[in-house]
Nucleic acid binder design. Structure first.
Lengths: 107, 107
DNA sequence: GATATATAGACAGATAAGCATATATTTCAG
DNA sequence: CTGAAATATATGCTTATCTGTCTATATATC
């Protein structure tokens, strides 16, 4: 379970890779060529980043003729949301306990 | 703005560092010594990780005598939440446009 | 003086990104 | 059928960054 967070954070930590993912989120499905045209890095590098994103479950690929279309897979962000709200939840529950304590002290 | 995401993802990508942050979220304020005792790495390493977490705004420190107490700073996760919901938002709006298109085609 | 922490130096090892290039695959077009 | 196009993948290389070690040492507190 921690490994999922590991892969997510690690995969999204690279700016180039995160930029690719963001573009797919913003603009929807894109071919490798279209992504390469604006990525500022070479095509093999783009392909490798896409492979890593796919490995992390963050993107999906669809083959059409000699092109490959990539699109963002939003479900993959769920562990991130879970983790975040879990952290916030721990904080909240500690806050609740503190409130309880203060309430009891008040009596 | 992207730099904030950069720092957050990069800071949380390291397992040891993320574990420290998670412990602070779960168990509340802790001294460096207490954190070191279970971190599996040396005290200087723990201090450096804490410095990086602090630099990213993820933790806060409080000096008390010769000890330093660290605690999680949940606000720092806001950009992460924003980013996530922004990505989901882009997806949603494209989905909406698709629905509109289908609706129009249906007529 | 002992304790708790921060910080710094030097070093080793791992990991990752980037490049260039080559090549294999599949697909499409002439 | 042949060649070009789109992509994936691999190799080799360079460079950078990061984590960790250990070993100081500075600082403040008790």
């Amino acid at each position: 379970m921690a490994e999922a967070h590991d892969a997510l954070f690690r995969t999204l930590a690279d700016p180039t890779r995160r930029a690719l993912f963001e573009r797919l989120c913003r603009e929807g499905e894109k071919t490798v060529g279209a992504l390469t045209a604006q990525a500022g890095v070479s095509q093999p590098v783009v392909s490798r980043h896409l492979a890593l994103l796919k490995q992390a479950g963050l993107v999906r690929d669809r083959h059409e003729g000699r092109q490959t279309h990539y699109s963002a897979q939003l479900d993959a962000l769920a562990p991130l949301v879970d983790w975040t709200s879990q952290m916030a939840g721990f904080w909240q529950s500690r806050f609740d306990r503190l409130e309880d304590l203060l309430k009891r002290m008040d009596q």
